[in-house]
Design a binder for these strands. Structure first.
Length: 356
DNA sequence: CACGCGTGGAA
DNA sequence: TTTCCAAGCGT
């Protein structure tokens, strides 16, 4: 590839980016940028963490809610753990929420409430890795960092027809993404690369016909754009089985327990269970348990079939604690537990002869 | 470096 | 129904 070609690609990309309508609330528009306005690092950070392995569509409502509840990093740092975990419920990868709080508190405690501007400084914070550190520095401060996420990996693999499978190809893709990174408007360049990957240079059936850099794309020329990037095959998911117990007290309170900080659904509320998450457990109390049905759920690395047992009881529990509204909302639960909750309450309603 | 870690939408 | 996948990080 000629030297000048890199410049041409960059220009075509920025031209395309400037013509796009921006609907995401954490972005600045062309007018703001022209006025020299940079986006709020807190909002950039929050959006980037939420967007880790998560779609824009899923993030939008959560971002709005978080910024409404906690407008600044100091507000978030002062929040209670349980409140933040409850707001994150349903978004997945709950270690992100725990690290989010730890990061906010570190920014307040160690950095005077101001996010470090440099990639290196950001990298020291919990939940901020190579991608997020580079992205925040580039987007919030227009630093010429190499921003390499899944989108950029795909765009670079295709532009340069890299046939080495991921993740082995990552160092080479980082080098190529670095070649493309300009000194002028590097932040917009990074966002342009990611947006191109998200909207045009998509994993399946890329829209090469409307791509602003299609003329420079080696994979397109070779007719293999849709086949890149190649990936090493993943292991098949096993299926696990297990049980959860949902006890309801006469006053309507449900028996729940806070899960351990580490591991699956770490730090989230859940129903006492056995045999599905690697830990063994006995029924939380003795009662006339009866089956409510089964819940099916798929995690990153296994399928789960969960038997849900219910009981109406006033007995004191051996594990967990009773919680009632307003301290327990079904939406505070991770999705697996919300499914179990819905099934259990339907079964309890049937048994009590109630009709909707 | 390989693995553990959620969820919902698309094909 | 099943598989793949989305703006990764921590260990």
């Amino acid at each position: 590839m000629r030297d000048g070609q890199v410049t041409e690609i960059g220009a075509a990309l920025l031209g395309w980016y400037d013509a796009q309508a921006r609907v995401m609330p954490w972005r600045t528009g062309p007018a703001e940028r022209a006025a020299g306005v940079r986006p709020d690092p807190y909002r950039v950070w929050l959006s980037e963490v939420m967007l880790q392995q998560t779609t824009v569509a899923a993030v939008r409502a959560y971002f709005h809610r978080f910024t409404q509840l906690w407008p600044t990093v100091a507000d978030l740092a002062a929040a209670e753990d349980g409140a933040v975990m409850a707001e994150w419920a349903g978004l997945g990868y709950y270690a992100r929420a725990r690290n989010l709080l730890a990061c906010a508190r570190a920014v307040v405690r160690d950095h005077g409430g101001v996010f470090p501007a440099s990639r290196e400084g950001l990298l020291t914070l919990p939940g901020i890795g190579p991608y997020t550190a580079a992205a925040i520095s580039a987007i919030a401060h227009d630093a010429p960092e190499v921003v390499l996420d899944g989108n950029v990996e795909r765009v670079a693999a295709r532009l340069f027809a890299v046939e080495t499978p991921l993740p082995a190809a990552k160092p080479e893709l980082y080098r190529l993404a670095g070649l493309l990174t300009p000194q002028r408007r590097p932040g917009d360049h990074a966002q342009a690369m990611m947006d191109l990957g998200a909207t045009i240079c998509t994993p399946r059936s890329p829209a090469c016909g409307i791509c602003p850099v299609t003329g420079f794309c080696a994979a397109r020329r070779a007719g293999i754009a849709a086949d890149l990037p190649r990936k090493t095959p993943k292991a098949a998911k096993p299926t696990r089985t297990g049980t959860v117990w949902v006890a309801r007290r006469p006053d309507g309170a449900l028996l729940v327990e806070r899960r351990p900080e580490r591991g699956l659904l770490g730090g989230m509320l859940g129903f006492p269970g056995d045999g599905w998450d690697g830990s063994a457990g006995a029924a939380p109390l003795d009662a006339g348990w009866r089956p409510a049905g089964e819940v099916r759920h798929t995690f990153t690395h296994f399928h789960l079939i969960l038997q849900v047992l219910v009981a109406e009881t006033a007995a004191a529990p051996r594990r967990g604690a009773y919680l009632a509204m307003p301290d327990l909302h079904p939406t505070d639960l991770p999705t697996l537990m919300r499914k179990a909750h819905d099934l259990a309450l339907a079964a309890l309603a049937d048994a009590s002869g109630g009709s909707i």
